[in-house]
């Protein structure tokens, strides 16, 4: 029998992790499928398991002066229903998986899986969400882009638990999200683009673009964004060609059976252009 822990509190969980390496199990929608070995056969786990999905301390969503805190074990459904979660983020989550799977899947699971197709990631990169890691003796706060190292790899240490994510309490005036996939909702994303901007009296005060599934990690460039901020919305259209060219250098799809790299690149550049045209009409 595989050893398993079901701690009653976060403190208890951290104490166990300080002495023993475990596999953390939240909703199981990634782990149970990745480790599945078929009908009526136990999935394969090489380390003791630690269940954390039931820990109330990890489920809370609340706001303070730092921003909106989303508990690591908050399930996607709870985020969609919560008044504090920004509208565009809810819309993105609503396009993930299906309702029964969203009742199980947690935000930390999506982040720790560290897939360039993870659908919460474009938002978390765009708003520079902070990941909070806890061990018995320290707390680390790391930006999402630094937390995720490469596909399937994060900088979490064996004695740490991801306890929450902090996002700014902010809604943008323009929001754009497109996800082009084989089957809407269910399939892992093929190409996705999140665009957000604050346009006031025709002036672009703030702007973010993040692309999913088009490179080994989420494509998000504060440098390119900066070149568009404080421009007039009308000027953006003339800049489009040049901006698209800059993004084209960053888009390097890891080709797989789901679609060709050429399709991903063309489609994502078309989405960037479309977002810029939308803004230019403000």
């Amino acid at each position: 029998m595989v050893k398993a822990y079901r701690p009653n509190t976060l403190t208890e969980a951290l104490e166990i992790l300080s002495t023993e390496k475990c596999t953390i199990m939240a909703g199981g929608t990634d782990l149970m499928v990745q480790r599945a070995r078929g009908s009526a056969v136990l999935p394969g786990f090489d380390r003791p398991l630690m269940f954390v999905g039931h820990l109330k301390e990890l489920q809370k969503i609340y706001q303070d002066e730092e921003g909106i805190h989303i508990g690591a074990a908050a399930i996607l459904t709870d985020m969609m229903e919560h008044e504090l979660i920004p509208g565009i983020f809810k819309e993105m989550i609503g396009q993930m998986a299906s309702p029964p799977t969203r009742n199980m899947a947690t935000i930390a699971g999506n982040i720790c899986n560290a897939s360039p197709a993870g659908d919460t990631l474009p938002y978390l990169y765009a708003v520079n969400a902070q990941i909070v890691l806890q061990s018995t003796d320290q707390k680390r706060i790391i930006a999402t882009r630094d937390f995720i190292i490469s596909p399937k790899k994060t900088c979490i240490k064996p004695d740490e638990i991801l306890v929450k994510i902090i996002i700014p309490a902010k809604e943008y005036s323009n929001n754009y999200y497109r996800k082009l996939g084989q089957r809407k909702g269910m399939s892992l994303t093929k190409v996705s683009l999140l665009g957000m901007a604050d346009v006031v009296d025709g002036n672009i005060l703030d702007l973010h673009i993040a692309l999913g599934s088009v490179a080994a990690s989420i494509v998000h460039s504060p440098k390119i964004e900066k070149s568009m901020i404080s421009k007039k919305a009308g000027e953006i259209k003339e800049m489009a060609e040049e901006i698209v060219k800059q993004y084209a250098d960053l888009i390097r799809p890891i080709d797989d059976a789901r679609s060709t790299a050429i399709y991903r690149k063309k489609a994502s550049l078309r989405l960037i252009k479309d977002f810029m045209e939308n803004i230019s009409q403000e």
Partner: peptide
Amino acid sequence: GEGECGACVILVDGRAMNSCMLPAGAIVN
């Protein structure tokens, strides 16, 4: 057996979940 078809859906505390991805250790109480 991988969350795509819904044939295994049950209610857990009133909410639909895919029992093919749900580990037994997660249904305590």
